[in-house]
Design a binder for these strands. Structure first.
Lengths: 247, 247
DNA sequence: GCTTGACCCTGACGCTACGTCAGGGTTGAG
DNA sequence: CTCAACCCTGACGTAGCGTCAGGGTCAAGC
């Protein structure tokens, strides 16, 4: 038996928030004859779950729905919470690596400010994209998200493709050369250098980049118009050159 | 020269957001005679800075202020951004450790559900408390925040103190015993066990806990009323016992 | 010259999760 | 009985846009 003030301080939320939860039916306490709110111990438990789910980013309406349909075990809540945080931490790691790459890029006389910042922004966006639903619900759903995560925004694609134009043109002009020869090797290493520059050496992002190029057919038309065409022979030339380098 | 639509897609923000930034004076493009918005390349740069600062959690008004007073170098922005992310990542690490501790606690027949969840919530709160201002501005301000970060909410203090009541009573009953004796040793190890349980083994949090006890005089009166008093001799007994254990 | 469709503009209201009064009832101590 | 200390319920404010509604603009085709 607590009044609103005690209860709010006990649970670390404001009285106004309790009023709010009451009005939207998320947490309805008993009332005295005078209309005063009276909270009990079981309300503590529910409010804790509310706060926990809220910290996962769930909107209050969904929280209500979830708690009403299938109430949440403490262990489940903790596991879900932890998984969310772990995923966020991984995303942050990627972002930090990306920024470090951008910093190096800028310091080494980085000509293309926008490209570097774009990179950062893109990586940051990945952070935001992790929606709470996917985090709360099982692994299947999450994997779908993961798969789609490599998608790049059209703008970034545009920027990137501009960067590549020169290199591709040069490769195209060198198609006749020996893939193991010095010129081809230099082109291949420039190619990898560009890839690394834009991915911060992050394998996940590189995979995304690969998918992005593979998916060029589905790009918006206006982007495709400006983007350089990588014809199969160009790809093959570079791959041959990289294979030759390994031998 | 881009129109609003092109520009928005280029930079990954919505047209509506651009209108908003225009209205609040954050990013005012040129206009055609018909009143159409026209963005130019320098606007790209400014918008990038806006987005970057926004991702730090800065409110738009502050962003405007900052960009108007002292425009931001790219390198500075990147460094600030990275520092923020690194701090967040550290906080996440603490939170994850805390949750793992709570999970272990619950699994091992955790009697006190609320205490475990409280612990988690508290740790999560630490995450939120990292305000952007402190992250953006220099280290001095940050250290102040760090110092204050160990503060615990009154509710948690209340919970914790309930946990300790029994143990303290037992210690008090054993004050006459030999600090090196088996009983004292068991009490000391239970003491440390409780500390570890509540801190997830995290040294930062343990330090916070220490400060919290040291600061008991300043606790809210109602909490102090319910909290067990740790008298100096109790402290000394435990410290003697732990010292004896080291020998 | 006029229509058509694709864009662009400016309000204006909606949304989330509350913060912050204002105005008025309730409760317990003196 | 009074008075301070609480409690209640609207009602409006906040940030950062989303989402129409109503209306101007522009280039193309007839």
């Amino acid at each position: 038996m607590y009044n609103a003030r005690q209860f709010s301080r006990m649970c670390g939320v404001t009285v106004r928030a309790l009023h709010h939860y009451d009005r939207i039916g998320l947490l309805r306490p008993r009332r005295t004859s005078a209309g005063y709110r009276v909270y009990e111990d079981r309300d503590v438990e529910r409010l804790e779950q509310i706060v926990a789910l809220k910290s996962l980013g769930a909107p209050l309406a969904k929280i209500r729905e979830m708690l009403d349909t299938h109430p949440l075990g403490l262990a489940d809540a903790l596991r879900a919470q932890r998984r969310v945080l772990e995923e966020r931490r991984r995303a942050l790691g990627r972002a930090i690596r990306a920024i470090l790459a951008a910093e190096r890029y800028v310091k080494s006389g980085g000509a293309n400010r926008s490209a570097a910042l774009k990179k950062v922004m893109e990586t940051i966006q990945m952070e935001k994209q992790t929606e709470w639903t996917n985090q709360y619900y099982g692994d299947e759903a999450r994997e779908k998200i993961e798969a789609g995560k490599g998608r790049w925004s059209p703008e970034l694609q545009e920027r990137v493709s501009r960067q590549w134009t020169d290199l591709i043109a040069e490769v195209q002009a060198s198609l006749g050369e020996d893939p193991a020869g010095p010129k081809a090797q230099m082109l291949a290493s420039r190619w990898m250098g560009l890839v690394n520059e834009f991915t911060g050496g992050d394998a996940d992002i590189q995979a995304g980049l690969g998918r992005m190029w593979a998916d060029r057919a589905n790009w918006p038309a206006d982007v495709n118009a400006k983007a350089p065409a990588i014809r199969p022979e160009v790809w093959r030339f570079i791959q041959d050159a990289m294979a030759a380098a390994k031998r």
